Amino acid sequence: MSKISDLRKSYERAELDETASLGEPMGQFRLWFDEALAAQLPEPNAMTLATVGPGGRPSTRIVLIKGCDERGIVWYTNYESRKGRELAGNPYAALQFHWVELERVVRIEGRVEKVSEEESEAYFRSRPLDSRIGAWASPQSQVISSRAVLVANAAKYGAQFALNPPKPPHWGGYRLVPDRWEFWQGRKSRLHDRLCYRLQDGLWVRERLAP
Rank of each mutant, 00 (worst) to 15 (best):
L203A: 15
A210M: 05
L102C: 11
A159M: 07
L163S: 11
G158E: 15
F97L: 10
P168H: 02
G53S: 12
R132Y: 07
I108F: 04
E119F: 00
V105M: 14
P168W: 00
E113A: 15
A159R: 15
A135E: 06
P42V: 02
S2G: 05
S21G: 05
P139Q: 14
L102P: 13
E35D: 08
Q185V: 03
L176F: 10
W171C: 06
E18L: 15
T60A: 15
L129S: 07
D69C: 04
P211Q: 04
P168G: 02
G134A: 05
R125F: 01
Y157I: 08
A162P: 08
S138H: 09
P211E: 03
W99F: 02
D17L: 15
S126E: 01
Q28A: 10
N45D: 09
Q185T: 04
S131Y: 10
R8E: 11
P58Q: 05
V63M: 12
L37W: 04
A154R: 13
I108P: 03
P128Q: 07
E24P: 07
L31D: 10
P165E: 03
A93C: 06
A93R: 04
Y123Q: 00
S146V: 04
R147S: 14
E119R: 03
S10C: 12
M1I: 07
P91S: 13
S5N: 12
R180I: 08
V105S: 14
P25R: 10
W99Q: 03
F124S: 00
D6P: 00
K66W: 02
V106T: 13
G56W: 01
A154I: 03
S138R: 09
P44E: 06
A39T: 08
P211V: 01
S21Q: 06
W136F: 08
T51L: 09
N78P: 11
E182N: 07
V151M: 14
Q40E: 14
S189K: 09
N78K: 07
L203Q: 15
A38Y: 09
F33G: 04
P211L: 01
R175Q: 02
A36P: 13
P44S: 06
W75N: 08
P169K: 02
E103F: 10
M1A: 11
S146Q: 00
V143D: 15
